[in-house]
């Protein structure tokens, strides 16, 4: 696979919900291609029969007790919201009225 041809920056921007300026795209394209070309050296490793690893010490089904605990008060959280009103976060309209 030739990574340079397979990187569709516009599609990635959609998937990541990230706007990039034309200048950023111009710089990022070749950089990503070079990094992806570099990580492709993993193709030479034989991983037949190898399990994927996600934690240093295998753990499963870690659950805490199903108990209601007090959370920080709502107003405190809302202080970090860019816009709020009547104890709610304000957002631009998402449904055409």
């Amino acid at each position: 696979m030739n990574p340079e041809q397979s990187i569709d920056l516009d599609r990635l921007c959609v998937l990541a919900r990230l706007s990039l300026t034309p200048e950023e795209k111009e710089k990022l394209g070749p950089q990503l291609a070079r990094i992806i070309g570099y990580v492709e050296q993993l193709n030479e490793v034989d991983v037949d029969g190898i399990e994927p690893m996600a934690h240093a010490i295998p753990m499963e089904n870690v659950l805490r007790k199903d108990e209601a605990t007090p959370l920080v008060d709502r107003e405190k959280y809302l202080k970090n919201a860019p816009a709020s009103r009547a104890s709610q976060v304000v957002v631009p309209p998402v449904i055409e009225g």
């Binding site: 990187i7 990230l18 990503l32 992806i36 991983v47 190898i50 994927p52």
Partner: peptide
Amino acid sequence: KRRIMLGTYVLSSGYYDAYYLKAQKVRS
């Protein structure tokens, strides 16, 4: 931004096995 784009690429449809899963196996 560079890392978000790179991470989005390696997780995107059709590439997951080739990159993320492969990397987790090499991690083992």
